[in-house]
Design a protein around this nucleic acid. Sequence first.
DNA 1: CTGCATGCAAACCGTTTGCATCCCC
DNA 2: GGGGATGCAAACGGTTTGCATGCAG
Lengths: 139, 139
Amino acid sequence: MNAPTPMIRLTTQRQIILEELAKVTTHPTASELYDMVRKRLPRIGLGTVYRNLDLMAESGMILKIEVGGTQKRFDATTDNHYHIRCAICGKVDDIDVPVIEELVTQAAAATSYHILGHHVEFTGICSTCQKERHGKAAS
Amino acid sequence: MNAPTPMIRLTTQRQIILEELAKVTTHPTASELYDMVRKRLPRIGLGTVYRNLDLMAESGMILKIEVGGTQKRFDATTDNHYHIRCAICGKVDDIDVPVIEELVTQAAAATSYHILGHHVEFTGICSTCQKERHGKAAS
DNA sequence: CTGCATGCAAACCGTTTGCATCCCC
DNA sequence: GGGGATGCAAACGGTTTGCATGCAG
């Protein structure tokens, strides 16, 4: 109702981008996705990937995750859920913590903004990075 | 206790950056801060602002807010609190919603990451931007 | 045939970095 | 005098954009 869902045409490159994104549970950056897609569509341009990722995010087909870190990441799962980002390697994973809907209500009462949504981002150290620095406690 | 607080030397430029940051309740970007500081220190370089901002964030004197949007923002208030970002103009404000400490406990149980912290970011439309689009409902 | 989508490359913008100089200790 | 801090400018990485061509409707 408030999201017009512009209904974009599903071109070959859009379809493949979507498929590749749906294939992984990680949350790839645009250039990671570019590399994945290029294996099937060698002549695709980075610009096309960016353009279509943005377009699909706007039309609600995918989620653009704007968390900390330098690059934006994308997610084929569009229902609200939270993320955790490794402070060392920057990897982003889903985290299975119940979404707190009351937060929006609370926020609405506490601000003059018209609330659209919320997102929780945890910061941590992933198991891989933990192993790589085992024993470096006090430094 | 877990933050070594490396105790950096408080040079003139660091002091002034800190003062200017503390002066405002908004969460300025590096270049906004640069403009503010330049009024008092006309010869300061953007690089110095970035370097010192990072340094001060590392030593826990200020907070580097890594939220959505293209630019990082800085906050003189270092205790944990949540933010709301305007989806239109990108402005970031504090929001007075109680910090949910249990989230960290829940998260710890749900992941193999070693949790460091969490942050909640609301998205909304600030009152200024609301006014500027009053009546544009159905496009 | 017409217009949107693409590939390509250049432009952009925020941030980082190398280096010579400067200043504090 | 020595080491960190600064100013400056160039480099960088991610993203966006302009334009000529291609392809689907």
